[in-house]
Amino acid sequence: MLIPQLGNQSEPKISATLLKCVLSGRGQQTWVYGAVWSKGFRRAHLPVSLLEELIQSIVGDVFEGRIRIRSPGEAPLQLIKMMPRYFKSLCGLLLAVAGSTSFATEPVKVVLEFEPDPANGRYLFEICARCHLPEAWGDNEGNYPQLAGQHTNVLMQQLLDIRSGRRDNPTMWPFVQERTIGGYQNLVDVVSYVATLPMNPHHSQGPWPQGTEEYKEGMQLYQTNCSSCHGAGGEGDNASYYPRLQGQHFSYMKRQAIRVRDGLREVDPAMAAVIKALSDEETDKVLNYISYLPVPAKDLAPSADWRNPDFE
């Protein structure tokens, strides 16, 4: 198949000799890993397939990637971080290098760091906008979520989860593969572009507005079950990867809640436990309440007729 190359192709690859060694098998592992450790991971500008292959061959087939987007002005992270079992994983790594596979099933959390380029993100978002539309506002049917306004870490985690298959989304899956969207740098760029978009001021809301009995019950349920992580106003938390709920479509949240309840979407176990503990009626009420949580005016587009000028 003739697949065109897309996006920012300037990701510096590690040197040709190193690449060859990595791909040539186990004979030269020690040297290769040592080299990558000290050089390649510093900026983590590796093509995704190579990186995943590398990490998989170090730690077996378990790889939990997490991408961190550096905010402007923030100091860069030191090399690679192994979290949360830093020490154990490092031992695992060393043992693996020495030829042992005893730690092969230990998940290693790898934090990579990228500097976002929203201009490249805008270019890449042309792919996404075919379905998500240039405003990334989602739809009232619940097919697409409101992406605008969502925390960057949350967006990135969803992209990675869909890419790896952890979040089952067959129709989105090919779009987030490297052959379509590109490497991690491109994912970071596209997320950072979405972060520049204002939110839909008229997202779909539940059937019970403020003042109704159902709204009040939903509020109580929210305060008991949800606000400790998602925040009193549904603002979520970027650092902790808690999604922002305010402004999200009622229809979308409902579909996702049903998927979690039925075991079709894997989420944080604590989150799944909350949803499974609620009855269908309670879920409706709490999501209804969330859909009425106010969105700060500064995050909203001036009107529902606003159109993304980047796509004019």
Binding site: I3, P4, L6, E126, I127, A129, P134, W173, P174, T180
Partner: peptide
């Protein structure tokens, strides 16, 4: 919503779209 300027992203998206549907 219509994108009438053809581009590589569109071609790429069409392939990913079909693959997703088959999947």
């Amino acid at each position: 919503h219509m994108i009438e300027d053809w581009d590589i992203q569109g071609g790429q998206a069409s392939l990913a779209w079909a693959e997703g549907m088959f999947r």
